[in-house]
Each structure stands twice: as structure tokens, then as C-alpha cells.
Design a protein around this nucleic acid. Structure first.
Length: 513
DNA sequence: GCTGCCGGGAG
DNA sequence: CTCCCGGCAGC
């Protein structure tokens, strides 16, 4: 008993440990991972909290946050009167001329051309116009509109000062935050869900890996995980939550087709969402040869690809995913986008045009939100392969697992280990014993049973023997069971392995007839 | 004789 | 209750 308990506890704790362990380090697939370092970075790189900008004479903080880092060194040195610079003022980036640069106070007086104003700000809040070009992703070619496009975004996000070595983390972080904050409405819910799902997936993977599954009880972990653990327990991970999203999110990473790798595009995309806020509109361009159709929504573009190029094969798994690879995210100015929207086609409500992307055309598809329920297929899609089996596992394996445990609860079985699929075991033992050995050779069956001692799953009836229903015997005595009983299985020598009933000469509880 | 297990007794 | 065992009956 105690041993059983301890075994159980052991399993549980072990499982918990495994689930938890990777959770923190591995994180919900990249969600947590960047977070931790991020915090560090924040503390290290920005010793002064972001709030401190309040005491700044001007209110141009955000940009500083974004820009300064990479070039602060440069610009801190040189601000000459008359120099053209950009500052963040009144919610937008403004062009201005340097009036005066007080190196001692680290202040720069700037004459704003647009506002006809003179303002004073800290040097790191001002950046040289020439430098704009040198800042790859963040810097708009056209200061005005595009700067606006992303600055407001950055405003909402605490993007820490960048250190060269921190760029990766930053981008990851920023990408994630941005995904959740801005972008198309469809994308908005997912991030949370995604985190959860990936989390659950991790959990599942872990389970798979360990070949063991805990019962729901063990799944009480931290808040973040509780959701996923809820999911990952017997019940399937709510596929309906956002099926397609799942498909996309999980699908890509594990594609072995060598298509796209999820995380990378995600990172690469980072700069894009930042700028997209106002004047830039994200469109999706069909990459199919000679097509170049541009649609406004992923749904649209997917539908387009599917319908026109892939042939709408009733969202077969394959196509369902392929379509993702036939379009790309494109950013264009609002106006052109709007103009483009004027020419709808092929039933898609979205806009279509050969609009000229004014900005980046991200090489890979962005993590695109699933088209609404329409595609019921979401859940069954490839991306879900991973968690489906996992789910299956969590359902079947644990089920039998506990079942067995329950039935063996009263026994002390030294090396109690349930293989991933007890059924294999059991079917073997069941098949072997009754069919091969003559029922009268206890020795043989015994040795056999010892090789794989405790596996006969109680609930499983021996399929080889069909017992005719016992005719009502004179006495109510139960017809003799045909199945193996503990005594037969374990032998008298190992009576301690019998089920209690057997030990007490009662009807066997383990091998029910 | 071996086995499964009912019925009953002891603690 | 749990644990044990006498004893019956099927094989």
C-alpha cells in the first residue's frame, strides 16, 4: 500500500517536476523564455525606470526608447546648431533644427520647423536626420507619416533600451507584445491563446516524452499554466478556441516539409508591426506566380490561394497549411491600400490590387490568424498532430494507467512500471497464456506471467475465451472463472502479489471474469 | 490434484 | 472491517 502510494506520489511529483521544469526555462514555447532575460535587460539596460521621462522637459520619451539605443553614442556627441534633427513632439515625429546643444546639461534646444516652436529636450531624445537611414528597421524613409506609423505603437510598449546583445530578446518581446496590442483585430485574441496552447503543447510533449501522464490533480501549477493544464488533462485542448490559429501556430514549426519555420518569421517580422499602426496598412499579397493579388485579410488571402491556386480541395489538411506559404505580408500606405480596396475580386470582400507595396514585404508569412470557424478543419490540421496524439495519450494512457493502478492498489509490486501502452502488454500476455500453454501447465503460465508480471489489465476480458453464461447452477455458486487468476499468474510462491481477494480465497478482483 | 471461491470464523 | 481457512465444485 505504502509502496503504491509512494509510487503514485513519486510519479506525480516527478511529472510535476518535469512539467514545471521546462516550463520556466523552456517556457510556453518562446513566450516565457524571452521574458526572463527581458526583465534582466530591463533592469540592466534601463536603470532608470521609464517613468522618469516625466521629469524630462519635453515629452518625447518613447522615441528615445526606441531609437537612442543604437545610435545614442553617436548622436550624443554631435549636435551642431542648424543641424537637422528629428524629435518626438506632440505625439509625432517632427523635424527640427538644432539651435543649441548644451553638452553639459545634455540638453538640446531644437527649433521645430513644423510647429514653429522651440523646444528643449535631452540629447537622447533627439536624433539626427542623417542617421535615420542608418537605422534599418525602425527608420522610415519618409519621416513624417511613417514615423508616426510606428511611434505611437512604441509608445504603448515598453521597449527597453536596446543593447546590441539584447536585440534578439527585444525583438522577440516586442514582436509578441505587438502582436497582441496592434495588428489586425483577428490577431488580437490569439496571443493569450497561443501562449496557452503552446504551453499545453509543451506540457503534452513532456508527457509524451515521459510516457507518463498525471491525473488532473497534478496539474495544479502556476497561474499561467493552470489554463493549459486544464486543457491538457483528459479533455482535449479546446480546439474550438481558435482552431485555425492553432493550426497555423503549431503547424508551421513542426512542418517537416521545410516550409517555413515559425519563430524566425516571427522575429523577422518584428519591425513590421511596429510601423504598421497608422499610415501603413498590412496587406497580404499572393505569391502565386503571376498573381500578385493583394488582399486585406489573411482570411481573404488564404481563401484566395485556396480557391484559385490550390483548388479548394475542401480544406484538406495539406492545403490548409500550404496556403499559408503562398502569400506574404505586405505593408502599404493607407491610401494606396484603400485605393486598392476599391477593386474587389473573386468574391472576397477584401481588397485586391497589384498595389505597390511601399514598404517592406516580409519574406515570410506572418503568423496569421485563422479564418473564422468556416474551416472546421482547424483542429484536425497538421499543426495539431502534435497535441492530438498527446491528447490521445492523455486520454488513453492515463486512463488505463490509473485503472491498472487502481486495481493493483492493494498490491505491492516491486517494479511497477506501466509501459506507454499497457494494452500491448496485456494483449500479449492474454494471448500468450490461454492460447499457447495448456491451461494445465501452471508452471509455464507462471513463468510467462512473471516475465511481465502485473500487466493484465483488469478491465480487459480475455478475448480468446468466450465463456458461455453460466447456467443457473443448483447452488448460486458462481461459475468458475475461466480467466487466469492471481494464483495462476503469480503462483503460490508469490502470493504476496495476488490480489487481496485471491489471497483470501475470494473471487478474484483483478482478473474479473 | 489443482483451482476458484463461497461461507464462515477470528480478531 | 480485515484476514484467514474449511470446504465445495469445476477442471
Amino acid at each position: 500500500m505504502a509502496s503504491v502510494l509512494s509510487r503514485r506520489l513519486g510519479k506525480r511529483s516527478l511529472l510535476g517536476a518535469r512539467v514545471l521544469g521546462p516550463t520556466t526555462s523552456d517556457g510556453p514555447s518562446g513566450a516565457a523564455q524571452p521574458l526572463e532575460p527581458q526583465v534582466e535587460l530591463l533592469e540592466r539596460a534601463a536603470p532608470q525606470p521609464f517613468l522618469t521621462y516625466k521629469d524630462s522637459s519635453c515629452q518625447e520619451q518613447p522615441k528615445e526608447v526606441l531609437k537612442t539605443p543604437s545610435i545614442s553614442g553617436l548622436q550624443q556627441v554631435a549636435f551642431h546648431p542648424g543641424q537637422k534633427v528629428y524629435v518626438w513632439y506632440g505625439g509625432q515625429e517632427c523635424t527640427g533644427l538644432v539651435e543649441q546643444h548644451s553638452g553639459a546639461e545634455d540638453k538640446v534646444t531644437v527649433w521645430l520647423l513644423d510647429q514653429k516652436l522651440q523646444i528643449c529636450c535631452r540629447t537622447e531624445e533627439v536624433w539626427l536626420a542623417e542617421l535615420q537611414g542608418s537605422i534599418p528597421q525602425a527608420l522610415p524613409t519618409e519621416p513624417g507619416a511613417q514615423a508616426q506609423a510606428y511611434r505611437p505603437v512604441s509608445r504603448n510598449i515598453d521597449v527597453p533600451k536596446r543593447k546590441s546583445d539584447a536585440v534578439e530578446m527585444d525583438e522577440m518581446m516586442a514582436a509578441m507584445v505587438l502582436t497582441s496590442l496592434s495588428c489586425s483585430p483577428i490577431v488580437q485574441s490569439p496571443p493569450g491563446a497561443e501562449a496557452n496552447f503552446s504551453a499545453s503543447r509543451v506540457a503534452c510533449d513532456l508527457w509524451k516524452e515521459s510516457g507518463d501522464v498525471s491525473d488532473s490533480g497534478s496539474s495544479t501549477t502556476s497561474g499561467h499554466w493552470s489554463g493549459s493544464s486544464g486543457i491538457s488533462t483528459p479533455s482535449p485542448p479546446h480546439p474550438q478556441a481558435s482552431p485555425k490559429y492553432l493550426g497555423d501556430a503549431f503547424g508551421s514549426p513542426q512542418t517537416d516539409n521545410g516550409f517555413e519555420t515559425d519563430p524566425d518569421p516571427f522575429l523577422l517580422d518584428e519591425p513590421a508591426p511596429r510601423k504598421r499602426k497608422n499610415s501603413l496598412k498590412v496587406m497580404y499579397k499572393c505569391l502565386w506566380p503571376n498573381c500578385g493579388k493583394v488582399l486585406r485579410s489573411t482570411v481573404g488571402i488564404k481563401r484566395h490561394v485556396k480557391a484559385l491556386h490550390l483548388g479548394d480541395t475542401v480544406d484538406s489538411d495539406q492545403f490548409k497549411r500550404e496556403e499559408d506559404f503562398y502569400y506574404t505580408e505586405v505593408q502599404m500606405k493607407e491610401e494606396s491600400a484603400a485605393a486598392a480596396a476599391g477593386t474587389p475580386t473573386s468574391g472576397t470582400p477584401a481588397a485586391e490590387s497589384a498595389a505597390t507595396p511601399s514598404m517592406t514585404s516580409t519574406p515570410l508569412t506572418i503568423l496569421s490568424p485563422p479564418p473564422p470557424k468556416a474551416q472546421s478543419s482547424g483542429p484536425e490540421h497538421p499543426g495539431l498532430e502534435s497535441y492530438l496524439p498527446c491528447d490521445a495519450l492523455s486520454k488513453s494512457a492515463p486512463g488505463s494507467f490509473w485503472h491498472i493502478q487502481a486495481d493493483h492498489a492493494y498490491q505491492a509490486l516491486p517494479s511497477f512500471q506501466i509501459p506507454v501502452s499497457p494494452h500491448i502488454y496485456t494483449s500479449i500476455s492474454w494471448a500468450a497464456a490461454p492460447s499457447t500453454a495448456s491451461p494445465l501447465s501452471p508452471v509455464r503460465s507462471r513463468s510467462l506471467s512473471f516475465s511481465e508480471p502485473q500487466q493484465p489489465p483488469p478491465a480487459m476480458k480475455p478475448h480468446l475465451l468466450v465463456t458461455s453464461p453460466p447456467r443457473a447452477q443448483s447452488s448460486a455458486r458462481k461459475a468458475r472463472g475461466e480467466a487466469k487468476k492471481c494464483r495462476k499468474v503469480y503462483g503460490i510462491e508469490h502470493r504476496d502479489q495476488w490480489c487481496t481477494a485471491c489471497r483470501w480465497k475470494k473471487a478474484c478482483q483483478r482478473f474479473l471474469d
